[in-house]
Write a protein that binds this DNA or RNA. Structure first.
Lengths: 137, 137
DNA sequence: TTGAGTGCAAAGCGTTTGCAAAGCA
DNA sequence: TGCTTTGCAAACGCTTTGCACTCAA
């Protein structure tokens, strides 16, 4: 039922130490139902079609709070600004939050392991141009 | 020597089918020398201290061109906009450039493989909060 | 010469912020 | 009631764009 889901979301929000406002509940509910990975704008539109109108600032505020509490994932993570890398060979990036540094970690074994792995496991005819492995410290 | 490096950069730029302007040469040279992963602004400052002043628009223009030709890597890649994911369990994201879609690919084996792998291979006391594996199709 | 590339400044756009009003606990 | 959260609109900051000028080939 609808109500069960709402109760669950309310539960999760409270459990994270937050007040269960209607805005937060509907954001969490919609985001957990969606199979896609919406942007803030997409989410707002979806919420709007479901009758949950709220302001842009609130959406961003809620999403930020949720991701800090670990309720959702913020893709693109802590890289607010575009960064560039002169080395196009495969390597792992280790993002160090404390000093805003990006370390490189080279390992040709890992590339082979991953390539072999995805070779056999990816759905149908998906051809991958690039792999990106990032660690967040 | 300095000149060798400049010649090499010129070579690479021409080989990519681009005109070897002084701006492009110095950008590629500086970026390949730097061990860090500069933002556009950082790069501009570094260029400036080396006596290569150029306008912001040009920097962005050059970096975009280079990354399209595969000469450099643009971190954060084709995710221009923040996206959100209701599922915080480990899974691979497959970015599909053509339709701006993000597919999920769940595999608990992979998580174990990677965790084990990094366990023994990462430098010293780096503790990882999150791993992100992205494929670009 | 001439089409590609640069400089400059203005515009764009996703995101953040400040503050008053509202509402959960 | 008290303190968190929302709404609104303005501000922010990185990036893009338009157009005239310049220059590599």
């Amino acid at each position: 039922m609808k109500n069960e889901k709402i109760t669950l979301c309310t539960e999760m929000i409270r459990h994270a130490g937050l007040k269960a406002t209607p805005q937060r509940i509907s954001v969490l509910k919609v985001l957990s139902e969606l199979k896609s990975h919406p942007s803030a704008e997409m989410l707002m539109e979806e919420l709007e079609t479901q009758g949950h109108v709220m302001s842009v600032g609130t959406i961003y505020n809620i999403l930020e709070t949720f991701s800090q509490k670990g309720l959702i994932l913020k893709l693109k993570d802590n890289q607010e600004v575009m960064r560039f890398d002169g080395n196009t060979d495969f390597h792992v990036h280790v993002y160090n939050k404390t000093n805003d540094d990006i370390l490189d970690y080279f390992d040709s074994n890992l590339e082979v392991i991953l390539k072999d792995y995805f070779e056999g496991n990816l759905p149908e005819g998906l051809s991958i141009n690039r792999m990106d492995v990032s660690l967040y410290a």
